[in-house]
Amino acid sequence: MTLIFRIAALTSVVISALIVFTLVRGAIEFLRLVPLSGLIDDAKTPGWFPRRNRFDLPTVVLGTLIMSSIAMVVAVPLGLGTAIFLAEYASSRTRRIIKPIIEVLAGMPSVVVGYFALKFIAPELVANLFQPDKIQNMTAAGIGIGILIVPIMASISEDSLSAVPGALREASYGVGARKSATVIRVVLPAAVSGIVAAFIIAVSRAIGETMVATMAGGLDGSGARTSSPLDPGLSITAALTNAAGGSDQALVGAPVKVLFFLGLLLFVVTMGLNLIADKFVRRVRQKY
């Protein structure tokens, strides 16, 4: 029996090993076709054009950074605000009503949010607010990603706020502090590790979020390098799905092999972020 259980547990290690092996092997094969120097397009208008063998890494990195940053601008105030409200201000009755609603948002399939970004956020919200040249742009996609990560930001922050012992709040009230002073000067500083962890995990999710970026980013797998959030743009994930989407044949050629390289890049970045977040989470556990 023990052997069966141990094999089951080892499966997870095998999966990790296979992921790393697959990504590294594919990335090496890609780099054989396209040398590292080819990853910065030196054309007059540089960009990501896989079918023409132009793989400009700054294009997709910029796209990812812009969309994730917009997502965080949306998710941090909404998520953290909701967390503070629920943990410190809401009555237990209000909490019982709001928490399940946030959980609905947490369970929202990303493809549905992608549809929402495509059909509402882009044409009605962003188009009216910012008058972009193109209806589909990175701002719309970023807001969509932000909506998806609000629940993560909210739930992890709320957990760390709730983990702050009530005795600290009482101590603060005991010397005549108001609720707002107690929240800002005692509770938030005590919960800061958990909130930082929430932030990092949210960033990691934003970078890895695929459907919204693919559907609402405004490009079909190729586009010029841009740093304007109101331009259409390509994230690493969107470039990845598009590289695979065109692959009806066997896995050959740089335009397809690039997906392993992008996958490896994504894997390294998100795993690094998750490990850092883990450190912060553990710091919370040690303290209380």
Binding site: V13, S204, R205, A244, D278
Partner: peptide
């Protein structure tokens, strides 16, 4: 390892 696997973007499982 399991905790890390839970945090990997879904699209990477697609590559796998």
């Amino acid at each position: 390892n399991i905790r890390n696997l839970a945090g990997i973007p879904a699209v990477i499982y697609g590559i796998l």
